[in-house]
């Protein structure tokens, strides 16, 4: 979708939400809930995250009139979830703890010799396009499985940055992490996906 079209579509959707059009709410739920869940899962377990996202949608019903469009609708919704999740953790005196100390995934780190060169070099066929790879349904299922097994912090960062195309600054605000820690989360998650695709291409197994 072209950026201009997307903007027009979003403006129309916002008008529909402000006019309390149920069909527009249903469309917005399907467009934005995956990203809202990615934000919530950074802070909360799955059940609590679903409850939080449902509560946020109810809040949106009453708050959409105050949406002025200074940020995009997606960013506004993601910030609502993040703020509520942070308040929830504060009330329950809990913190998100994540290891940001090493940017290299242990499974990849093992593939280097002591001199820093590849001992087990990458074997992926990099000339195979992502589009061609996506046509393989088994690979798509495998990707689902591995995404669901990523540590929550890594998955949320990856989803917001790659799948929902947020800018780094936005992801840092929403997830309350520094720019350098976001880089670690993204890189760790990407290495996991790289390793998964490599194994799949080599063995045909997930």
């Amino acid at each position: 979708m072209e950026a201009a079209n997307y903007q027009t579509d979003e403006e129309q959707l916002i008008e529909g939400l402000k006019a309390a059009n149920e069909a527009d709410f249903q469309m917005a739920v399907r467009l934005y809930t995956p990203g809202m869940m990615a934000v919530a899962r950074f802070y909360l377990d799955h059940g609590a995250a679903e409850d939080m996202v449902q509560d946020c949608w109810l809040a949106v019903v009453n708050a959409i009139h105050s949406f002025e469009g200074r940020s995009g609708l997606k960013t506004w919704l993601h910030r609502i979830v993040a703020n509520r999740a942070k308040n929830y953790l504060r009330k329950h005196q809990r913190e998100v703890s994540t290891d940001f100390s090493e940017s290299l995934d242990p499974d990849l780190a093992r593939r280097f010799a002591p001199n820093g060169r590849w001992a087990t070099p990458p074997s992926l066929r990099s000339n195979e396009s992502a589009e061609a790879l996506m046509e393989n349904g088994a690979l798509s299922d495998c990707l689902d499985k591995h995404l669901s097994h990523l540590p929550e912090a890594q998955r949320s960062a990856l989803m917001l940055y790659e799948a929902h195309q947020h800018k780094s600054d936005d992801v840092c605000n929403i997830l309350d992490v520094s720019a350098s820690n976001l880089r670690v989360l993204l890189h760790r998650a990407r290495q996991k996906i790289f390793l998964m695709v490599e194994t799949f291409q080599e063995t045909g197994e997930c």
Binding site: F25, S129, E131, D144, M159, E162, A163
Partner: peptide, 30 residues
């Protein structure tokens, strides 16, 4: 090159993951 391909794979893949039952529960509440 492979890391880039993996990223493109992610971008093309994950935007459509939503449990439809969950979406319907939200629809109902809204």
């Amino acid at each position: 090159g492979s890391l880039r391909t993996s990223l493109e794979l992610m971008r093309g893949h994950s935007s459509h993951q939503l449990d439809e039952d969950f979406a319907r529960r939200i629809d109902e509440q809204i």
